[in-house]
Computed example of a mutant assay.
Amino acid sequence: MTAQRKMESAIRVHRSGPLALLQDLGRFGVRHLGVTQGGPADLYSWAWANYLAGNPWGSASLEITFGGLQLVAERDLDIAIAGADLGATLDGQPVPLWQRITWKEGQKLAFASPVSGLRAYLSVRGGFAAEPVMGSVATVGREQLGGFDGWGSKLADGDRLAIYTPDGKPAEGMSEAPDDVRMDFRESPVLELLPGAQIGEFTGRSLYDAFNTWWRVDDRADRMGVRLLGPKLQCRIGSLISEGINLGGVQVPPDGQPIALLNDRQTIGGYPRLGALSPLSASRLAQCLPGQEVRLRACGSGPVLEHYRCFLAGFRP
């Protein structure tokens, strides 16, 4: 029988900001019930934040979008912040990203606004603690699932956040990420796309445009999906019988502007699809600010799977 993990209140929310959500790996095995996945929009940065904090794979972190969040430590904590540069400071002093640091009791950790990227991940050694709902604490506001209260709520001023008490042993693994794994979110990314079943139904001109255009990220972007603006893509299929939608699926609605679907996507859809972004490309897209340009590159499943397996091997036991 597994011993009950001890929990303790460790952080007070001084100012909640626009959007800070608790996210573990997400919910799986429930899409047949119409329940979406949730989890970190940027799996890459989430994984590094947890690893640097000394947490096991799957631990819950705070996903902080746009910034504006202010937190006060109620005890000394070992933390790591990875992902977007949101101008984080401790008592007014810049916080180093992509490494483990100590957050002293009484210090205020504040996030300003995006400098590079959109979402930062705050991991605390021991991991944030909450009661799982359908096997996960991942927050999905639309479905009112997960989070610290179990109802998918955003953080609010005055909330107190609990963590699992660390075991007292020194944290394992590296405490600072190498320079070559730290993402520069100011760059315009090339996103890997695995062609899907309907790709042959798009016109030749549309296929040329799809993979030879710098698409612009629309301001209509959230955890459900990101709309890309560019030339109008035309498909011989107007609509389909609704089918399951995977992470990164790129739908093309009648207006011809692709929509890449992310973690809080609907579970089924009837628009034709170009294919699906690789998991790491979906993560990279989730860090793009409105107006940023991206490009699609068609890839085979072999190289994409190998890349993803190598990524996972660095974090999972």
Rank of each mutant, 00 (worst) to 15 (best):
T203Y: 06
A221L: 04
L191D: 03
M174N: 12
P178V: 08
F211I: 11
W214D: 14
G230R: 12
E187P: 00
R182K: 13
M183R: 13
R220S: 14
Q234R: 14
G225P: 04
R182Q: 11
F185Y: 14
V226A: 08
F202A: 05
S175P: 09
E192G: 05
Q198I: 05
E192C: 07
L193K: 04
A210P: 06
W215Y: 09
E172A: 15
F202Q: 07
S175N: 08
L233Y: 13
R186K: 15
E201S: 12
M183S: 03
F211M: 10
F185K: 06
W214C: 10
T213Y: 11
Q198D: 04
S175G: 15
R186T: 14
A197P: 06
R186Y: 00
Y208G: 09
D184E: 11
P195W: 02
N212T: 11
P178R: 10
E172P: 13
V181A: 13
L233V: 10
A177Q: 11
E176P: 02
D184R: 02
E201P: 00
S188L: 00
R223E: 07
Y208V: 05
P189K: 00
I199K: 14
V217W: 04
R216P: 00
L194W: 02
A197T: 10
D219R: 13
E187H: 05
K169G: 04
D209L: 12
R223G: 11
L233D: 05
V181N: 02
E187F: 00
G200W: 05
M224F: 03
E176W: 02
G196M: 09
N212D: 13
D219M: 13
S206V: 09
R223K: 06
E201Q: 12
Q198V: 03
D209M: 02
R220C: 06
L194G: 03
L228T: 09
L229F: 03
V190T: 14
E187V: 14
T213M: 13
E192V: 01
R220I: 09
A221W: 08
L207A: 10
L229A: 08
R216G: 01
L233N: 02
F185A: 01
G173Q: 12
R205T: 09
K232P: 01
P189T: 10
E201N: 10
V217E: 01
D180P: 04
V217N: 05
T203S: 15
K232D: 13
S188V: 02
W215P: 00
D222N: 15
R227G: 07
G204C: 10
L191I: 02
R220Y: 06
E176M: 10
L191G: 05
L207T: 04
L194P: 04
P170G: 12
M224R: 05
L233G: 08
Y208P: 00
P231K: 01
G225R: 00
T203M: 05
F202H: 11
W214N: 09
L193V: 11
L194C: 09
R186H: 09
G200V: 07
A197G: 01
R182I: 12
R182M: 10
M224P: 06
A171H: 09
A197I: 04
D209Y: 09
D179A: 15
V181K: 00
W215Q: 07
R227N: 08
R216D: 09
V181Q: 08
L193F: 02
P189M: 04
D218K: 02
E201L: 14
R220H: 13
G196A: 08
D209V: 01
F211V: 14
V190F: 00
G230P: 06
W214I: 01
D180V: 04
R227V: 12
L191P: 03
F202E: 06
R220E: 13
M174S: 15
